[in-house]
Design a protein around this nucleic acid. Structure first.
Length: 1038
RNA sequence: GGGCCCGUGGCUCAGCCUGGUUAGAGCGCUCGCCUGAUAAGCGAGAGGUCCGGGGUUCAAACCCCCGCGGGCCCA
């Protein structure tokens, strides 16, 4: 059965059941003789997929389905990123915790267990959502970052880093989340707008009443100030200024003096001195808060730094404990890394007066103190982009702490080198964007002071400080099992005896989750515990993720892989865009513009959703629009209807079709078969080059435009033929091949409807398929191979001719519309004007054109005879000819066509011997009586629209036929059923066409001038046919 | 402040690399057609400062420079 209405929901249900009941995926997986190693970028187990994740997986699915059909044995393990802060934060919320201490007292073991449950539960939920998008991956055997084998791989990698001297414990300024009490990687910081104080502070110099002025948005870092930096090459000034009667001297950058004065409401009295920044290196100043922070009673001086910019004051406050640049500058000058702030962002005793205060709360107090001391020049508010913990959204602080680092700086060059060896789609994703990121990358801080993560496998001797890096779980004396739990706090309990006799304890940190996912390409293969798969498959043939992963997974994988193997872990990277709302804004809860994938699927179906998200270039952001998605449902509906049309006739004639031996292809068959090959070619090229979107447009063009809207129209009369004619069989054979092959080519995109059509249409004609094309059907379309291109079927000349014919038809329709001649009405003549190609098209496709345009005759001319008429172009001629204009007008009105033509050709008019430019004429082409014209891209058509009586009778006959057909439908009559027809009009008006009417409507009796009586059992309707009221009655023949 | 990408009818996009007829589609809109795919299908028409400003060129949506707006990433 072929349902008359395309219902995605029903089709989905049927196909999902079919796939499931027959283990199709499992069977498909067994095929293939070459390996294709795909690594899934593991989504974080948040519990719900969004449009972007859905798009991401669909993109992957298309590629994988294609590769499978090309004969690859595809490694399609999905992955899950399950550790880390977001889950900790969620669980903390659930438990109502706010600090790490609450976790500790609750019990780390219980907490970690909750995190694990949470992650596993979410994994299940999300898996279901992906499955519902018809994404075929090995859902029963995913890789998970929490599994022992995975952790084993991560440990092994760290040990590699250690062995190569790339693992270091260093004091560094890191992004620190005071709420989560942990270091954050660059990748875990998100920047957003925040309001902060913006203050200009005077630092007292040794000289009386003189100051160097700095600007900062973080007053809380002032207690840790150790220096002021200026740019060596900028020009600075010492200026005498007056404020509230007081005179003092300040040092700022020369070009910024006026602005600073304005901010501080200072009057500039004079510039005392002008000098380069380098001249004041070492200049000493007093710490502005030395009374409040006693430890600051020490020497402070001016340093030189190139990162200083000509902004604000040109002098930068340096706190090596609270800024990355500051830290490195401090190293250069031997400054102490003073960090009087603890893990939760509270000042320590070292901060003197401020001890015990939260740093953010201290801002206002510090400003107050500065004001009291007369050191505050100006206080404002500023809204700027500031880093926030992307997990808990708290503003981060910069803080110097001891952390474990992978020293990317030592392998950066190699990383950049490896980027060149990868195939990036688009090219700029790797060559410009990723390279830029990698070359600016700093050492990678991989330690986190948290609980739910891969424990860092480093043990340190409490006595001698010796370090032991554990490279595998069996080094702990534990055997790796599927269900082995290698998390905190269990691992913390393990100790080793040191050579010195001391006890080695594990550092309490866990890994940055980016390190987890960084090792995915070998951890998914269980390397290093299992070796053979790794040796066979690695590195990955293909990965694809969104452009945010430039700094994320593309990077963490490359970094980890360089450490482990000195080469890139992937060969091909497709970078895709973001799913935005239809206005191009990010989807976010606060904007309330989130569109859920399941909403879309519910509305348009899985296939339409898939083909929609696949229709635009992957690397462009996708501005999601429901209307667009709905359009694709409409297209699929046309696909459905086209197949159904074919199905209806072909099943009716199935026996004949199976037996048939006599097939004669017609020109339109050859044409659509040529188009088919071209479509398959585009599809294959697009998939090979990962320009996956290009297939979509090509498919719509081919299947909807060419096949459904044109070819099916052309062959209608052929399929209506009663007997199994060779021409009808050719049409069937053509249709079968077109649907079969094109559906296979598009099946990776719209797997469900494709499978349905394969099962219900292609399989229906399996015998013919085998006989004609020598291909036996498979259990599923996905066990077929991807269509090969049959070059010999391509006929470019024919395609060109048909393209012109289609245009001619359009132009003729246009002309009809202008002349108000319905397509149903036959017309006498259509003249087509154009070049050689047009001539050829008309010759080749005359029959098609005649039928489609509904004209009795079609004629090609190189040049259609038109009457030329000229009028005076008064705007041009007036000023030139002045009073002679009247004579000229008379002259023009009497110009012959030949003269006009000559004037146009030569550009000159011979006006009584005078040479005038031809632009004084407006030349008008006048069509001969009875013609209407319309143009197409390479020519013009002239439609003869005059009707004679005979033609008009034919038109009316057709009108009547249509009405009767409509009435038959109202009565729900069977197509084969015979009827009696009676009409109120005279037979005269359709004279000569009575038999035609009777045949068309299957009428036994046809009666004219009938008077309808109430009691008769006629089904009667009164119609207005071209201004004439005609009653028509029909009834079933008894 | 830096890097990369995007900016074309009301909407979504093609064209740009490799400059050259009248800038193309689809959706929407208006008008119409078809009626043996029919709770479908098809056509035509209207609608454009090709983000703005410079430059190169005989010629710029396209190449170059400077801006503006949006997105992602960084500082």
């Amino acid at each position: 059965m072929f349902p008359s209405i395309y219902s995605p929901e029903d089709v989905e249900e049927e196909i999902f059941r079919f796939w499931h009941d027959n283990s199709i995926y499992e069977k498909v997986k067994k095929k293939g003789d070459r390996d294709f190693f795909f690594v899934d970028g593991p989504p974080y187990t948040t519990g719900e997929i969004h449009l972007g994740t859905a798009w991401n997986k669909v993109l992957k699915d298309v590629v994988l389905r294609y590769k499978r059909m090309c004969g690859f044995r595809v490694r399609d393990t999905p992955g899950w990123d399950m550790h880390g802060l977001p889950i900790e934060v969620k669980v903390e919320k659930e438990l109502g915790f706010k600090t790490k201490r609450e976790i500790e007292s609750y019990g780390v073991d219980k907490f970690v267990k909750k995190c694990m449950e949470f992650a596993l539960k979410n994994k299940e939920k999300m898996t279901e959502q992906f499955v519902k998008l018809a994404v075929w991956m090995d859902w029963n055997n995913p890789y998970m970052t929490i599994k022992a084998d995975y952790i084993n791989a991560a440990w092994w990698t760290v040990k590699r880093a250690h062995e190569r001297g790339l693992l270091e414990k260093k004091l560094r300024v890191v992004n620190w989340c005071p709420r989560c009490e942990t270091a954050l990687a660059e990748a875990e910081v998100e920047y957003r707008e925040k309001e902060d104080p913006s203050i200009y502070v005077k630092f007292p110099l040794k000289d009386e009443n003189s100051y160097i002025v700095i600007w900062t948005t973080t007053p809380w870092t002032l207690p840790a100030n150790m220096a002021v930096a200026v740019h060596p090459d900028y020009t600075y000034v010492k200026a005498k200024v007056k404020k509230d009667g007081e005179v003092e001297e300040i040092i700022v950058a020369k070009d910024l003096l006026e602005k600073v004065a304005e901010k501080g409401k200072l009057k500039i009295l004079e510039v005392v001195k002008e000098f380069k920044g380098r001249e004041i290196e070492g200049l000493e100043y007093e710490h502005p808060l030395k009374e409040e922070v006693p430890l600051q009673n020490r020497k402070h001086f001016v340093c030189l730094a190139n990162f200083v910019e000509l902004e604000n004051t040109g002098c930068v406050h340096i706190a090596p404990g609270h800024g990355v640049d500051d830290f490195y500058l401090g190293q250069e000058y031997g400054l102490e890394v003073f960090n009087p702030v603890n893990d939760s962002g509270v000042y320590t005793e070292e901060a003197g007066k401020y001890a015990g205060m939260n740093v953010r709360d201290a801002n206002s107090l510090i400003i107050e103190d500065l004001k009291k001391k007369g050191l505050l020049l100006c206080e404002e508010k500023i809204v700027h982009r500031y880093g926030h913990c992307w997990r808990c959204k708290s503003p981060i602080i910069y803080r110097a702490t001891e952390q474990w680092f992978i020293t990317i700086s030592k392998v950066k060059e190699k990383m950049v080198e490896e980027i060149d060896k990868v195939w990036w789609i688009p090219e700029w994703a790797g060559m410009s964007r990723f390279k830029d990121w990698v070359s600016n990358a700093r050492d990678w801080c991989i330690s986190r002071q948290r609980y739910w993560g891969i424990p860092i496998p480093v043990w340190i001797c409490e006595k001698c400080g010796r370090i032991k890096v554990v490279g595998s779980i069996d080094e702990l004396g534990i055997e790796v099992r599927e269900d082995l739990d290698v998390h905190r706090p269990r691992v913390d309990e393990i100790t080793f005896e040191c050579e010195c006799g001391g006890v080695m304890k594990r550092v309490p940190d866990v890994f940055d989750v980016w390190f987890d996912s960084g090792v995915a390409s070998w951890a998914t293969l269980k390397y290093p515990r299992v070796k053979d798969e790794f040796e066979k498959l690695w590195p990955a043939d293909f990965i694809t993720e969104g452009h945010d992963q430039t700094r994320g997974w593309f990077y963490s994988q490359l970094g980890a892989s360089i450490i482990a193997f000195d080469r890139a872990p992937y060969k091909t990277v497709l970078m895709h865009g973001f799913a935005l709302d239809k206005h191009g804004r990010k989807m976010s809860k606060s904007l309330g513009n989130i569109v859920k994938p399941e909403e879309v699927v519910k509305k348009v179906g899985i296939d339409a959703f898939r083909i929609y998200v696949l229709s635009s270039a992957p690397w462009e952001d996708l501005k999601f629009s429901m209307e667009e998605a709905e359009m694709y449902k409409k297209y699929l509906n046309i696909v459905w209807n086209a197949v159904r049309f074919a199905y209806m006739y072909m099943t009716l004639d199935k026996e004949d079709f199976i037996k048939c031996s006599d097939i004669s292809f017609k020109i339109e068959d050859k044409w659509i078969l040529s188009r088919l090959e071209n479509f398959c070619k585009v599809a294959r090229d697009a998939l090979e080059t990962y320009n996956v979107h290009k297939t979509v447009k090509a498919f719509i063009d081919f299947f909807v435009e060419d096949f459904s809207r044109w070819y099916v129209q052309l062959i209608r009369s052929r399929v209506w033929e009663e007997k199994a004619s060779p021409s009808k069989m050719a049409a069937y054979a053509t249709i079968l091949k077109v649907i079969d092959k094109s559906i296979r080519a598009i099946s990776p995109y719209i797997p469900i409807i494709s499978e349905w059509i394969y099962q219900n249409f292609v399989k229906e004609f399996s015998e013919v398929r085998e006989k004609l094309y020598g291909e036996s059907v498979k259990e599923s379309v996905f066990m077929e191979s991807y269509p090969e291109i049959e070059e010999e079927m391509i006929d470019a000349e024919l395609e060109e001719a048909m393209r012109i014919a289609m245009e001619v038809f359009e132009a003729a329709s246009n002309a009809r519309q202008k002349a108000k001649r319905k397509l149903r009405w036959p017309l006498k003549l259509l003249v087509v004007e154009g070049d050689e190609k047009v001539k050829k098209a008309v010759e080749m496709l005359e029959e098609i054109l005649k039928t489609q345009c509904n004209v009795k005759e079609i004629k090609y001319v190189e040049k259609f005879e038109k009457k030329l008429k000229a009028q005076v172009n008064y705007r041009e001629a007036g000023p030139l000819l002045k009073e002679k204009i009247k004579d000229f007008a008379n002259f023009v009105s009497e110009m012959s066509e030949k003269e006009i033509e000559k004037a146009v050709k030569t550009g000159e008019i011979d006006f009584n011997g005078e040479k005038l430019p031809s632009n004084l004429l407006n030349v008008i082409y006048e069509l001969p009586e009875g013609y209407t014209d319309a143009e197409f891209s390479s020519g013009r058509v002239y439609l003869y629209t005059e009707m004679d009586e005979d033609l008009w009778r034919e038109c009316l006959a057709r009108e009547i036929v249509r009405r009767v057909q409509e009435m038959r439908k109202m009565l729900d009559l069977n197509v084969e059923e015979f009827i009696d027809v009676a009409m109120s009009c005279k037979e005269d008006i359709v004279k000569g066409w009575v038999d035609y009417i009777a045949r068309e409507v299957r009428a036994r009796n046809l009666e004219f001038e009938h008077e309808f009586e109430e009691e008769e059992d006629w089904f009667v309707k009164e119609w207005d046919i071209e201004g004439e009221k005609i009653k028509i009655g029909i009834r079933r023949c008894s």
